[in-house]
Design a protein around this nucleic acid. Structure first.
Length: 315
DNA sequence: AAGAACATCAACCGCTCCAAA
DNA sequence: CTTTGGAGCGGTTGATGTTCT
């Protein structure tokens, strides 16, 4: 419901001059951006706040990489687009130093055309010639990995996560009723991951990962799971000795994910779960080591056994 | 050489979400 | 609970550059 810039009269539009850029950069470097709306006046710019924000985030920010996209970056864009569609900001979080705008432009001007040329529908990512419903250019493990990562990034667009719903009174607490239904009355958030989790027989395989949480004593199987009375599912549980600091809503855990622990003692958000199952918990950069990546995720999917199919079933 | 057609991408617009009042 | 305004998102536009005829 923000006020449209079109209502703001007398402000400059169009391409930015070097002088304007300098004013904006210099102001933000000294003061931070603060309120974007108030910024133009303080910085001496005849622009609306929105224009300033856009100029900064898409062009002037120091941590922006410009220029040609690498093959790895292209591959990531294509694969994530196959999974989550035109959610450029979510895709951008997987491409360090690239902006959503740049990725969107690159998709529209290069990748979309290239896929079309290759006989792949750029919307569905299905082969126009193969006649089957598979993502022909994605291996199964890669599919599962990216699905998990895609949700790790944002989850369903503009749907508050479980933790937020609890904290803002938008979801009933997981007390008497099914834990599962409490996760998302509206839609089956992350169910596949929970199912996959349920299928892990030997949770000790993952203890080194879960024990990565700072100051948490090594976990036993009983410490890690509890049973939902309604579904009889084994579900992951936060051990009693998790430090209070990690339960803080605003606190980021070892995995770089906040809002991970519900008030009811469960690991209820698949973002958390996904992290526990892999990637960030390894504490290393995942972008570069393709071979290790393959074997890592194959291993994870092997451990998930028959339930691994559920990883890709709910989308 | 000149104009048309096409490609690129920075910037804008309109919309939604969400926190705060 | 409703209203308001800030912020962010994706779609689109249009100025500019490049290639083609």
């Amino acid at each position: 419901m923000g006020r449209s810039p079109s209502f703001v009269k007398g402000l400059k539009k169009g391409p930015w001059t070097t002088e304007e850029d300098q004013k904006l950069v210099s102001y933000i470097e000294q003061n931070g951006h603060g309120s974007w709306r108030a910024l133009p006046l303080k910085a001496g710019l005849q622009r609306c706040g929105k224009s300033c924000r856009l100029r900064w985030t898409n062009y002037l920010r120091p941590d922006i990489k410009r220029g040609k996209f690498s093959m790895q970056e292209e591959q990531t864009i294509i694969q994530l687009h196959a999974l989550i569609g035109n959610r450029w900001s979510a895709i951008a979080t997987h491409l360090p130093k690239r902006t959503d705008n740049e990725i969107k432009n690159y998709w529209n001007t290069h990748l979309k055309k290239r896929l079309t040329k290759m006989g792949i529908d750029p919307i569905t990512h299905k082969s126009r010639t193969a006649g089957n419903a598979n993502l022909s250019h994605m291996t199964q493990w890669e599919n599962a990995r990216l699905e998990a990562e895609a949700r790790l990034v944002h989850g369903p667009r503009r749907v508050p996560n479980f933790y937020q719903r609890i904290h803002h009174g938008r979801s009933p607490p997981a007390t008497n009723n099914s834990f599962v239904s409490s996760i998302s009355p509206q839609q089956p958030l992350y169910f596949d991951v929970l199912k996959a989790w349920q299928g892990i027989n030997d949770l000790s395989q993952f203890m080194p990962i879960l024990n990565h949480v700072e100051n948490v004593e090594p976990l036993s199987l009983n410490d890690m799971t509890t049973e939902d009375p309604t579904t009889n599912w084994k579900i992951p549980k936060i051990p009693s000795n998790v430090p209070e600091t990690l339960k803080d809503e605003g606190n980021q855990n070892e995995f770089g994910v906040s809002n991970m622990i519900s008030e009811h003692g469960y690991l209820t958000d698949a973002v958390t779960l996904t992290n526990c199952l892999g990637n960030d918990a390894r504490g290393e950069n995942r972008d570069d080591d393709f071979e290790e990546e393959t074997s890592y995720w194959s291993n994870i999917l092997d451990k998930l056994g028959n339930n691994s199919s559920s990883f890709s079933s709910v989308f």
